[in-house]
Amino acid sequence: MAATGDGRGPRGSAGAQQHLSKSLFTVVIGSNNFFDYLESSDLRKKYTPHQYLSLMTTTLQEQLKRLHGNSVRKFVVTGLGVLGCIPSQRVKNQTEEYNEEANSWAVKYNDADLNLLLQQK
């Protein structure tokens, strides 16, 4: 491993892998995917909400494995927020109340699918 001479450590592929293995990655993903599902009659015809959330979990798992295969070892993974409470969802209701369906599925995703995925080794 060649050093850069400027105190920044080794260069090249080995240096990149070493740097990645010490870095912290924040993964904030899924909200837009679920909004797409809520707003797409085609997706709703093709998948139940549970099936779609399972698909999201599987896709996230594949991406995390990919990162891990590239020496990433430290992750912070956030779940879905209270999606039905954000302004873009509230204005879609005549009463501008929160979208209970979106919140319910976000909780189910966080508590079931995502939680189980992150407990796997």
Results as ranks from 00 to 15, higher is better:
residue 5 G to N: 13
residue 5 G to M: 09
residue 6 D to P: 00
residue 6 D to R: 08
residue 6 D to K: 04
residue 8 R to G: 14
residue 9 G to S: 11
residue 9 G to K: 09
residue 9 G to I: 08
residue 9 G to F: 15
residue 10 P to Q: 03
residue 10 P to R: 00
residue 10 P to I: 06
residue 10 P to K: 01
residue 11 R to N: 06
residue 11 R to P: 00
residue 12 G to I: 01
residue 13 S to F: 13
residue 13 S to D: 10
residue 13 S to C: 11
residue 13 S to Y: 15
residue 14 A to P: 00
residue 14 A to R: 03
residue 15 G to I: 07
residue 15 G to T: 01
residue 15 G to Q: 04
residue 16 A to L: 13
residue 16 A to F: 15
residue 17 Q to P: 00
residue 17 Q to W: 01
residue 18 Q to C: 02
residue 18 Q to W: 00
residue 19 H to V: 12
residue 19 H to K: 15
residue 19 H to L: 14
residue 21 S to F: 00
residue 21 S to R: 05
residue 21 S to Q: 02
residue 21 S to H: 03
residue 22 K to F: 09
residue 22 K to Y: 06
residue 22 K to W: 09
residue 23 S to P: 09
residue 24 L to Q: 12
residue 24 L to M: 11
residue 25 F to P: 00
residue 25 F to H: 12
residue 25 F to S: 13
residue 25 F to I: 14
residue 25 F to E: 04
residue 26 T to A: 15
residue 26 T to C: 14
residue 26 T to E: 08
residue 27 V to M: 11
residue 27 V to T: 05
residue 27 V to D: 12
residue 28 V to K: 06
residue 28 V to N: 02
residue 28 V to S: 12
residue 28 V to G: 02
residue 29 I to T: 09
residue 30 G to K: 04
residue 30 G to C: 05
residue 31 S to F: 00
residue 31 S to C: 06
residue 31 S to E: 03
residue 32 N to P: 07
residue 32 N to E: 05
residue 32 N to M: 06
residue 33 N to V: 01
residue 33 N to L: 03
residue 34 F to W: 06
residue 34 F to D: 03
residue 34 F to C: 08
residue 34 F to S: 03
residue 34 F to M: 09
residue 34 F to P: 02
